[in-house]
Design a protein around this nucleic acid. Sequence first.
DNA 1: TTATAGTTTGACTGACCGGTCAACTGAGGC
DNA 2: GCCTCAGTTGACCGGTCAGTCAAACTATAA
Lengths: 210, 210
Amino acid sequence: MGQVTDTREKLLSSTLELMHARSYGDVGVQELCEHAGVKKGSFYHFFPSKRDLVLEAMEQQWNQTKRLIQDQVLSSKLSPMKRLERCFEIFYEAQCASKAKTGRVHGCPFGNLAIELSTQDEGFRKKMDGIFREFSDVIEGLLREAQTAGEIAVTNVGATAQALVASMEGIMLLAKTRNDPAVIKELGQVLVRNMAVKPSRGRNGGKAKN
Amino acid sequence: MGQVTDTREKLLSSTLELMHARSYGDVGVQELCEHAGVKKGSFYHFFPSKRDLVLEAMEQQWNQTKRLIQDQVLSSKLSPMKRLERCFEIFYEAQCASKAKTGRVHGCPFGNLAIELSTQDEGFRKKMDGIFREFSDVIEGLLREAQTAGEIAVTNVGATAQALVASMEGIMLLAKTRNDPAVIKELGQVLVRNMAVKPSRGRNGGKAKN
DNA sequence: TTATAGTTTGACTGACCGGTCAACTGAGGC
DNA sequence: GCCTCAGTTGACCGGTCAGTCAAACTATAA
């Protein structure tokens, strides 16, 4: 009975594309509908509001991202720290692709929306917070593996994982502001390698007091 | 002849306040004017457009920030790495203040605008890029001092400084998304301390190859 | 064939957007 | 006393915003 269409899905994927490339405020319902090839009336048949559409689109995006990380990073046979570095490579490749297609580095879709909306809409803030926490848990797992493998010597793994997530977000921000994906690869490497255990040269490289 | 007023300054400081708390897209000219106690007609007497006002406000904000960093961080007598840590403390205190006043952590005014506008307005992107580069130079200076003082053992100081700036931005982003200023202090410490030279325990903490 | 649920359509609402403008105000210089 | 001019005012512009709605259409199941 009735019809079954892909209108809903078209709307969601258009949202992912446009919101990532621009911003929540700058992309209107009208434009969203035109991009999806859908009339505005249909939009409100499937979603109660623009806000709800974007919230659901973010959920979808995060599920896709988790799958990508699982397949391309976690299930790889590299050493833990190399897998962490691989994580930056994935981000680098994604931004290279968007730069090649649109001429712009768009940064992290989650970070972008978190910054734009988390002071204005508590629902968005909580959703983004949840995503970052989940991601932090993934990184923490990687760090624990690296620790038992002796690749790093870190006292507070949980906080370090959070700091790493923050650094990733910041690197994506900088890459977007430079409009240069190379930032991701370069700074990612610096970050990971500064974290790795160095072959100690001399008794004590310097007193770390004061 | 004619009048001299502080309308222009009121407009600029209202912009700083409102744009930092919300976003470029969400704050309209009308609201800006009401907040500053100015009529819309006056606005366009002083600024050709909203965009120009915000661009100038950012310039002002950056000059204020540079002065703050100079006074509170660079000219302090702490060790270089302690001064770096002090930098995070400054950010922490600023976000505590805004949380106490408004109930919200608003993050970095530069990062916020960079994310919102740098894919849509090349002028904004360049301005923010310039600010981040200047800031990176300041951090690089601090890092070089730390290096000669033997506080850190880092090969690529320039890239490390950039990575630090990125991490700061990311930490501000995370603090905003959590709505918790403590994130800044905690993750800042983790970052700085993981970077400091550790008292080497044993010949080689682990092979850092593969 | 008909009933019906699911989907589509486009005209519509009222509020608000950034920006314009001509008329006006008021203080300092002459 | 008046001229000049920076600054002020509020009405107004066309356009866009998110969201509404009643009517029409369409595919399927009975």
